[in-house]
Design a protein around this nucleic acid. Structure first.
Lengths: 351, 351
DNA sequence: ATGAGGTGGGAAAGCGCATTCCCAATTCAT
DNA sequence: ATGAATTGGGAATGCGCTTTCCCACCTCAT
């Protein structure tokens, strides 16, 4: 890395580094047109590219924003990343990416790395975990984030607030009303569905999943329905598939003829729902004929899936954008929340 | 951003900054155990986080790798990004992300930004364009990349080499044998399919799509079939949908009863194929009953799509990983190529 | 006892840039 | 014509860190 420097440009142009700096980057003072032209000329022939590191050091502001996701290949996160990227570009920032597989320990590492890089703000997406085995790592994550904030960093949180973190102005959380929306979904489904409900959820302690389970149950209760069984599996396509296999067995065992027997399966995210659907199909069962199925998130890439999946639509890209802007702006703006909506499609229609 | 500095830590520990630096970061020289402990102690109480910018400036090496993709929300790119991220983590690097909508102009900007940040290497994914309106921007992109390389940067290219770029050791391209694989696919399909073929391609001039079209045509020719019609649309789901609508009309018009009349549609990527499928379904046509359909890429999230899509499997994540490693390693290793394979599924089976 | 060869901490010189001062040259009002 | 105000370029300092040198102090062999 032997790029040419500002002083080299200055020397070539026959001016001082100060002047070169002033013309090459937006300074309050603008050198004379002729001299400016000479500097620009020199910069061009030398192929000068300003060293952002040095600039950052000198003005202590890096133009970096850090993004933390569980898995960038997951459409849920890549949609959010898209929004973050768009906002970052608009605000003339670069995004630094870290994937953590959802473990608080790796999230903590990512925060530390971003802090070292002096990222101006970081947006962290992905469900929190309340599992006891993660407690220690969660505490450390919170400590790391607090330290980051104490040093002037700002963080945008997608979803639910992070536990154990100091109550400061530095955190902006874009709340996703998981519970509320799951409740709405349950109520809608309960209006037409006669049979029992069952929930295919992520591991217990995964906040997002837990909230959706809770909301769905309360929605059922509102509708005067008995609580649904909950199956806990991995929070991904394969987890859904596993659950689907088991449910298929259950469905077949109970001679699924009567509408009063037909199951309605709610998977706590779309990707799991797809897994469930694949498993049922695998077992010779059809949706919605043999069971209703609903998901959550309304992942764009799954819209062409058939039967079309009933789900809760979330403006994922918008969420990413909002989180980024919130983490970048100084003014409060209050706790931003985002709106979702129940989207009923074929997978939960009457057979 | 008022984080504590190394000298503050040093002062607190009662040692020189040099010593503090030596203990806090891996240096060749290791201070005495007791003094090291004191420094670590001080660093801890001050919540010291090394300033990576300053470190980068001092040792001129940033640990940054830049990733350029068309669209991070596209599963093709997010799969590659996943691989890049994994490799980067393994090599203790951070990844800087830029999305460009596939325009050479924005790609050039991204390269410049990465160069300014002194990224050690950059991996650039996504089809090149040979359209005349992009010629100028392509030249500029090549110039920018060359400049980056002249300054010591290294670049890993996914897919086809970048046009107009200097022939140096600095470029490593992970070749995707699009043409070869498309030819293989065509041959396979030609073995069983009796009717005419049609290709739903991206815009003319989009290299990836062009290569696949060319390969497919030559495969047909090998099999003694007439060349396929080519429909050019946007290289995404909606483009596929548009083409699908048109094709549905064509299919219906030609009373599609006989096997000799049945169309086999090859979309130059999976996402387009999904769009085609959606359009056909929309028009009351069924795959593979009324037409065969094949894609390219074997996107993971589309595997549960029905009818299962015949396609060409590409190890996307591996490609990202390879490109990253190639751009990071100094030794040549020769031009790496990646293996794909024809994957026939239900969407092209006989009705 | 004495000089050679080690050891290990500190001083200082950058890395590439922004920016505050400082000062010479102009301009303007009176 | 003259002093004040303004303009615009340059010298110098510092951002936070690494890394060479340098040197005081020790250890050891002779």
């Amino acid at each position: 890395m032997t790029a040419s420097t500002l002083s080299e440009v200055a020397k070539l142009a026959g001016v001082s580094p100060a002047t070169a700096s002033r013309v090459l980057n937006g300074s309050a003072r603008t050198p004379a047109p002729d001299i400016a032209e000479r500097v620009r000329q020199a910069a061009d022939t030398l192929g000068y590219i300003a060293n952002a590191q040095a600039q950052a050091l000198a003005k202590s502001s890096t133009g970096l924003i850090g993004l933390i996701v569980h898995d960038i290949a997951d459409p849920y996160f890549s949609a959010i990343a898209q929004g973050v990227q768009a906002a970052a570009r608009q605000e003339r920032r670069m995004v630094l990416l870290a994937t953590t597989n959802g473990t608080p320990a790796e999230e903590k590492d990512a925060v530390a790395a971003f802090a070292a890089r002096r990222a101006e703000s970081i947006v962290i997406a992905g469900s929190r975990s309340t599992r006891s085995e993660d407690a220690r790592a969660n505490t450390e994550l919170a400590a790391e984030l607090d330290r980051y904030c104490r040093n002037g960093g700002r963080v945008g949180v997608v979803g639910q607030a992070i536990l154990g973190v100091a109550e400061t102005e530095s955190y902006r959380t874009i709340a996703v009303p998981n519970e509320q929306l799951a409740r709405d979904l349950a109520r809608e489904l309960a209006r037409t569905h006669k049979g029992p409900f069952v929930i295919v959820a992520g591991p217990e302690g995964l906040t997002t999943s837990d909230e959706r389970v809770k909301g769905f149950q309360s929605g059922l209760s509102d509708a005067g329905k008995p609580a649904a069984d909950v199956v806990h599996v991995a929070f991904n396509r394969n987890g859904g598939f596993d659950a689907g296999i088991e449910l298929a067995w259950r469905i077949k065992a109970s001679g699924q003829s009567a509408p009063e027997q037909r199951l309605c399966i709610f998977a706590t995210n779309d990707v799991m729902a797809i897994g469930v659907a694949a498993a049922l199909r695998d077992q010779g069962l059809r949706v919605p004929h043999d069971a209703s199925l609903a998901g959550f998130d309304d992942i764009e890439w799954l819209r062409d899936f058939r039967p079309a999946l009933s789900t809760v639509s979330l403006p994922l890209e918008e969420i990413g954008r909002l989180a980024t802007m919130a983490a970048l702006s100084n003014d409060d703006g209050g706790p931003a929340a985002v709106a979702g909506s129940v989207t009923l499609r074929r997978s939960t229609s009457s057979p």
